[in-house]
Amino acid sequence: MATAQSKAHVDWSGDLLQGNGQVSVGSGSFGPLPISWRTRTERGGGGTSPEELIAAAHAGCYAMALSNTLAKHGSPPENLSVDATCNFEFGEGGARITSIDLNVTGRVPGLSEEEFKSIAEEAEKGCPVSNALRNNVDIRLNAQLA
């Protein structure tokens, strides 16, 4: 079986709270992007965070999974708009990603709202990023037609 590999690299200097780094991806399609504790917790300073990159990966993967699942059901979408929010929280056990909210709006001729929601749930079960996170992160899906 063929394996597709994706790579990323970070150069980091300093400690957690005062330090900072740069993340780049192996494809060179974006970056390097600045990362720091401040950009992770305050969402300021023009950088990104691991959680933002997870949200981007999840939104992209889910859009592909839903597009494929809709086509398999004979209803390819005209358009899908997917927003993912990765929730990073602090608690007694420390900091952790607790949940991801996936919000999708689709323009899919010929489907009812109920059919679209059912197919959207099926696609979430087959999404590779969802499956990598499942049983560790609560994934909440909200799907609606445009």
Rank of each mutant, 00 (worst) to 15 (best):
K7L: 11
R96K: 15
E52S: 01
S81F: 08
I139K: 00
L17P: 07
G94Q: 04
K72A: 15
I97T: 13
V137P: 05
G28A: 12
D138V: 13
T69Q: 14
R43S: 14
L141Q: 05
S99N: 00
S118T: 14
H9D: 11
S112E: 07
L53E: 06
D138A: 14
C86A: 15
G19I: 02
A120H: 04
R40N: 03
D15C: 03
E124F: 00
D101N: 13
L70Q: 07
S36W: 05
E122K: 12
D138N: 12
L17Y: 11
H58P: 00
E122N: 04
S112P: 05
N142T: 15
T85I: 08
N103I: 08
C61L: 00
G93M: 12
V137Y: 08
G19Q: 06
A146Q: 12
T48I: 02
N136S: 07
L141D: 10
S6C: 10
N136F: 05
W12Q: 09
H73D: 07
R134G: 05
N87E: 12
D83E: 14
A8Y: 02
V108D: 03
H58L: 01
N20R: 15
G45A: 07
L17F: 13
N79I: 07
G106K: 03
T98G: 10
V129E: 05
V108W: 01
A143Y: 06
V10E: 11
L145T: 08
V137Q: 11
L53V: 00
P109K: 09
N20V: 07
G26R: 00
E115S: 12
V23G: 07
W12K: 00
L145V: 05
Q22K: 12
R43P: 01
N131M: 08
I100D: 12
S118W: 03
A123H: 06
R38H: 13
W37I: 03
V25E: 11
I119A: 08
E92I: 06
A95F: 12
E121N: 13
K125I: 05
T39R: 04
M64I: 09
N87V: 12
M1Q: 15
E51T: 00
R40T: 01
G126R: 15
G126T: 15
R134L: 06
T3D: 12
Q18T: 15
A143S: 14
A65R: 00
L70T: 08
R43Q: 14
V10Q: 02
F88N: 11
L102M: 04
S29K: 14
V82K: 02
G91K: 06
T98L: 04
P109A: 13
K7A: 11
N20Y: 09
T98P: 01
E52F: 04
A57N: 03
G45I: 00
D11S: 13
Y62V: 04
A95H: 09
R107Q: 13
G28S: 04
I97L: 07
C127H: 00
N103L: 09
S24A: 10
